[in-house]
């Protein structure tokens, strides 16, 4: 039944799965950080990832800034944009039901995507790989750029995890996740902290966008397609869990890759089947129990 499966196919899809998983993990991580502190489900996360890719493209085409420069600049630019967004549309409604902030970021997606489509059209634009070529591992061909994405995104995820779980700055964030008004009563500027945290989460999404640009086509809808999966990842992993977001992201990427090998028709469905199973079997999310029981 599975005679078509070769080691090349298996490893190839596993690699694609890991790459996709890297993006899932980075985006879910940013979403979890933002949700943890602000209780905002940032529906615009995908759109900001898309903006990151476009900023890289614009930097390259209009300013001649190469990929490596964009990797630094795009997250800063988009992160700053995110901070402005937070001040303008999230801060005014932060005391209301959190459904409103979800809807506000949803409305922002319509505007951002619409504007980008107006400017750049709906079809995908190519971004030249900064690391052409690759290495033949015997059982598969590994493009250099994909290897770079794998390693770099893993480093980013671990670095963010370390920042939050092991540093003083992270302690403020963890404490504010539990009781932000108490942290503020210690004299810490929590409103600013919220803006910066939103900026950090958004910058992570933009960084993902820059990483993705040479692999996928840069297009206005690249974000919402990804967002759909990210939502499932976050539901499976449990909202607000940092480590849960990272692990579930990679896990889902791998599962998706493997389904492509064994049952190609079902690769999109697999994620959602897992989600529904997870909901039935572990309604609180795979990783949420270890985090907090609030």
């Amino acid at each position: 039944m599975f005679d078509h499966i070769t080691i090349q196919l298996l490893m190839g899809q596993l690699l694609i799965g890991l790459i996709n998983g890297s993006f899932y993990a980075m985006l879910a991580l940013g979403l979890a950080i933002i949700f943890g502190l602000m209780h905002v489900v940032n529906f615009a996360h995908g759109a900001l990832y898309m903006l990151g890719a476009f900023v890289a493209l614009i930097l390259l085409n209009s300013f001649g800034v190469p990929y490596w420069g964009a990797l630094m600049i795009a997250p800063i630019v988009v992160g700053a944009f995110g901070i402005v967004m937070e001040r303008l549309i999230l801060k005014p409604i932060q005391e209301l039901d959190h459904l409103y902030s979800l809807l506000a970021t949803f409305a922002a997606v319509l505007i951002i995507e619409g504007l980008m489509r107006l400017q750049f059209g709906a079809s995908g634009l190519p971004y030249r790989s900064p690391l052409p070529g690759g290495v033949n591992l015997g059982f598969m061909f590994l493009p250099w750029y994909r290897a770079w994405v794998l390693v770099f995104s893993l480093i980013v995820c671990v670095a963010v995890w370390y920042l939050i779980e092991k540093t003083k700055l992270g302690a403020y964030l963890r404490a504010a996740n539990e009781r932000s008004e108490i942290v503020e009563s210690f004299g810490i500027n929590v409103p600013l902290m919220k803006s910066l945290t939103y900026g950090l989460g958004v910058a992570l999404a933009a960084l993902g966008g820059v990483l993705a640009a040479p692999i996928y086509q840069v297009s206005p809808s690249m974000g919402s397609n990804l967002m759909i999966v990210i939502f499932a990842v976050v539901v499976i992993g449990g909202m607000g869990s940092i480590i849960g977001a990272i692990l579930t992201g990679y896990l889902i990427g791998i599962v998706e890759g493997l389904t492509k090998v064994f049952y190609p028709e079902g690769s999109h469905l697999a994620i959602f089947v897992i989600m529904i199973l997870a909901l039935i079997l572990r309604p609180q999310g795979l990783f949420s129990a270890a985090e907090k029981s609030r």
Partner: peptide, 16 residues
């Protein structure tokens, strides 16, 4: 594309 942009803007205005 303006249709989407206008819808998003009105939506946002209603929420805010």
């Amino acid at each position: 594309e303006w249709a989407l942009i206008i819808q998003g803007s009105v939506f946002l205005a209603v929420i805010l």
